[in-house]
Design a protein around this nucleic acid. Structure first.
Length: 487
RNA sequence: GCCGCCUUAGCUCAGUUGGUUAGAGCGCUUGAUUGUGGAUCAAGAGGUCCCCCGUUCGAACCGGGGAGGUGGUACCA
């Protein structure tokens, strides 16, 4: 009983999970609001779904194994059914669409943002919990819907404050590569997957690395061997020619692709790009905003037609001078088979998704977050603890003026309280003690000004006596007077 | 999963060939200043040297195993 060694847990976080502070949250909120505004104006409806779904609804993670949490966070409900935290917002949308299929006006245009969770090894800029923001059209078979989503993605980038040339939406169509692989006799699912993986590594490994992965395989620096797709030399050349067929205007890319992919499946892909190009041109989407790029892969699994990625062309460096790589901040495409898993009925769908947390981090690093500075803060010091009621009234008057204000409710003398105000980054401290009560005044200390002046002052005695950063206002109407000083 | 690096105070890190009582800077607390933050000075608090086993008269230090962190790579609906 009398153990004086009480168990003290170490304060720590599971890896890949972040505490997010106010400035970070403001950055994320600004992004979500900008994107939501665009989605709303384009006629998308907001939807929220729960964090948990039944594991079988999320996809391939069936609760057959003892441990269905490969990649997801899963637990068993009290009826022993496996539930899992959603790993994206698309699977819940497919579930919702299937569940309410009759009630929805098709195409169902919905947007959604919220946390998603992935039980994988985290890395730099990669977390196990993060926010996604999606817009999708469910039940829209035509390429027009894809073109719309692409234009929407481009508009979101502009809405968050990015200028032309600072971002690009890169568009491809899965059927182009499918056509090529088919004609090479490499259309089998397994080979196709390996080819997609290899192409996806183009930016990191370069042409030569991809060449190895398309052929026999590649050994990386650590000595680990990655098996290749096993294509022959002629086929590798054709695939590489294809993925390097980008560059120039959308029309030029299409012209270049026609002879490479031929008719059949690939031809359908070319037609899709032609239709997308026509719509983008009609919407005055610039050639540098949306680019056709055959090297875009965008995930592996469920995309069936047009796919696209949104990338930032900006660069920044860490404090240590290392360049920050932003890479892709979002993307999307057509997925025609997702809802059919539930209903058996083919439901075409297309959508866009971006990672709010990663995007916000990039914009913060670039110092491009709008409205990220909080409003000025005033702290009313608790000079005499028996006059707390008065201090709360003063704070209320400041709030009524539209300022952020709080009465100090902690402990400690004035020195401590000013130190608190300083650390909070407050702009002003309001001091009302015996003297001020006598004279019906308030003393205002300009903390920011004081901090600046203090840098030049050597003698502590002098600045304490002079108090150059302080001024006195009449008690009546002090809040208004202070507010006016701020403008 | 595979490969590398790291783990000593709240934080960043020193710590000699293995030697007795493990240090610094920053931060924190208190005071110089009983109603004044950011300068300066002084004092103080704060440690399972990641854990276990072994070698040794003696281990923060050497050996083995484990855990955690981190970077790369693989996978990523």
């Amino acid at each position: 009983m009398s153990s004086n060694k009480a168990f003290k847990p170490k304060a720590r976080r599971p890896r890949g999970f972040e505490d997010r502070l106010s400035h970070h949250l403001r950055a994320e909120q600004a992004l979500i609001q900008a994107a939501s505004g665009v989605y709303e104006r384009w006629g998308f409806e907001r939807l929220e779904t729960p964090a948990f779904e039944f594991a079988d609804c999320l996809g391939k993670f069936l609760p057959d194994d003892d441990r269905p949490n490969e990649g997801v966070f899963a637990l068993q409900d009290d009826d022993e059914q496996w539930m899992a935290l959603r790993y994206d917002l698309t699977a819940p949308l497919a579930r919702f669409s299937a569940e309410h299929f009759q009630d929805l006006a098709k195409p169902f245009r919905r947007y959604q943002y919220g946390d998603v969770w992935r039980n994988e090894k985290p890395g730099p800029g990669r977390f196990r919990q993060f926010i996604q923001c999606d817009a999708d059209s469910v039940g829209a078979p035509g390429t027009a819907a894809d073109a719309e989503i692409i234009a929407l993605a481009s508009e979101v980038m502009a809405a968050v404050g990015l200028e032309r040339g600072e971002y690009a939406v890169r568009v491809n169509d899965r059927r182009l590569l499918d056509g090529i692989l088919e004609s090479l006799g490499a259309g089998a699912a397994e080979a196709r997957l390996k080819v997609l993986r290899a192409i996806d590594k183009m930016d990191r490994l370069g042409r030569h690395g991809v060449e190895l992965l398309l052929g026999a395989g590649r050994k990386d620096e650590s000595g680990d061997f990655t098996p290749g797709a096993g294509l022959d030399a002629a086929s590798i050349t054709r695939v590489l020619d294809f993925i390097e067929a980008g560059g120039g205007t959308r029309g030029e890319v299409i012209e270049r692709l026609i002879p490479i992919v031929g008719a059949g499946v690939g031809g359908a892909g070319v037609s899709a790009l032609e239709e997308i190009a026509a719509i983008l041109n009609a919407l005055n989407v610039d050639e540098d905003q949306v680019i056709f790029d055959p090297s875009i892969v965008r995930g592996l699994g469920y995309y069936t037609g047009p796919v696209f990625e949104v990338e930032l062309n900006l660069s920044a460096t860490y404090e240590n001078g290392q360049p920050i790589r932003f890479g892709s901040v979002g993307g999307g495409g057509r997925y025609d088979d997702l809802v059919a898993r539930f209903t058996g009925q083919a439901v075409p769908a297309t959508g866009f998704s971006f990672g709010v947390s990663r995007f916000a981090a990039a914009l913060s690093a670039l110092d491009r977050i709008k409205d990220s500075a909080p409003d000025p803060l005033v702290i009313v010091l608790a000079v005499d603890k028996d006059h707390m009621a008065t201090y709360f009234q003063l704070a209320a008057q400041l709030r009524a003026e539209g300022l952020r204000a709080e009465a100090f409710v902690g402990g400690g003398n004035m020195g401590k309280q000013l130190k608190y105000a300083d650390r909070r980054g407050a702009d002003f401290a309001v001091i009302v003690g015996e003297d001020e009560r006598q004279n019906q005044t308030v003393t205002i200390k300009d903390l920011k000004l004081g901090a600046r002046l203090a840098q030049q002052i050597e003698d502590n005695k002098a600045w304490r006596e002079d108090q150059p950063a302080q001024f006195t206002l009449p008690l009546a109407g002090f809040a208004k007077a202070l507010h006016e000083r701020l403008v």
